[in-house]
């Protein structure tokens, strides 16, 4: 064997380790879940009979499943515009701050590095009805009525979106800040000399040049919102996604079917649907948003 061949072999040997790892812990379980979605397996039972598309039919007839599917879409639809616009605005503002910038950055990143379970419980208490909830105490101090927040059909899902946006802001701001710093100053200076207002140079220069960052954030944040679980599990009574399924996302539905009702077949089918939803949305976003901008 030649040296060059040996090198190639050595490289593949090293590559094989992560490859095997991924096959065992990622791909194999994934394919297995696809198989399970066509069976009637119950966690505790040895029986795994092939049932065709029965589980999928059952899912689409299940009102709770449809509600959680719809809720999942709501989480993305409310959450993504909020987190993108807010983080871009804050990053652009922070980019101008010269004094104590590190401090503000730290401030915004704090929620992101705090364990999500702790964050959820703190917000669960912030949203409490009187006499405990801080937010309601503030409202009442201004003479406003106390709000039910997490115990309301209409307010509970937006309340959880707000918490999630608050958490994810820090991450998005850091990414945007990095992006802002890659924009060549010459462009902005040239625009300024040509008499562009700061608003014009933001929308005509900064924003288009930030497009790759925005695409990246929209895609990754959409996936985060599509997989939302921890916040809902910890902020609703007994992790039920209540009241009356008003906040239940798909992942919580899957969890309940799999580990509370032990219906692994049905849970796997719901997982397959979630997988396709994530893949579909991601592909559409990449197609629509990904544009090359050059000056």
């Amino acid at each position: 064997m030649k040296i060059s061949q040996k090198r190639i072999v050595t490289a593949y040997v090293f590559l094989a380790i992560p490859l095997v790892f991924y096959i065992v812990v990622r791909f194999y379980p994934m394919i297995y879940a696809f198989w399970l979605s066509f069976t009637n397996w119950r966690l505790i039972s040895p029986k795994k009979d092939f049932v065709g598309f029965d589980n999928f039919v059952k899912l689409f007839k299940d009102k709770v499943f449809m509600t959680s599917l719809w809720n999942t879409i709501k989480y993305v639809a409310y959450g993504i515009p909020l987190v993108i616009v807010l983080s871009l605005f804050l990053a652009a503002t922070l980019n101008k701050v010269r004094h104590l910038q590190w401090f503000y950055r730290l401030l915004y990143v704090m929620p992101y590095i705090t364990p999500l379970v702790a964050v959820s419980w703190v917000w669960r208490w912030i949203y409490q009805r009187p006499p405990a909830g801080v937010l309601n105490n503030i409202l009442m101090a201004f003479g406003l009525d106390a709000q039910p927040f997490l115990t309301s059909m209409d307010q509970s899902l937006p309340a959880i979106v707000v918490t999630t946006v608050w958490v994810n802001l820090g991450y998005c701001i850091i990414i945007y800040l990095a992006g802002l710093q890659t924009i060549p100053q010459e462009y902005l200076e040239a625009a300024k000399i040509d008499g562009a207002t700061s608003r014009q140079s933001f929308f005509k220069i900064t924003l288009p040049l930030l497009n790759p960052i925005t695409v990246f954030l929209v895609v990754t944040q959409s996936i985060t919102f599509l997989r939302i679980f921890t916040q809902v599990y910890n902020m609703t009574d007994q992790g039920s996604g209540g009241p009356l399924n008003a906040t239940k996302p798909l992942v919580l539905y899957i969890y309940q079917k799999a580990f509370r009702s032990f219906d692994m077949g049905l849970a796997s089918s719901a997982t397959v649907i979630l997988f396709m939803l994530i893949m579909g949305i991601t592909l559409i976003q990449l197609l629509v948003l990904n544009k090359r901008v050059q000056y």
Partner: peptide
């Protein structure tokens, strides 16, 4: 009383 008063 009501469900969720002082959390539980």
């Amino acid at each position: 009383g009501y469900p969720g008063f002082l959390n539980d």
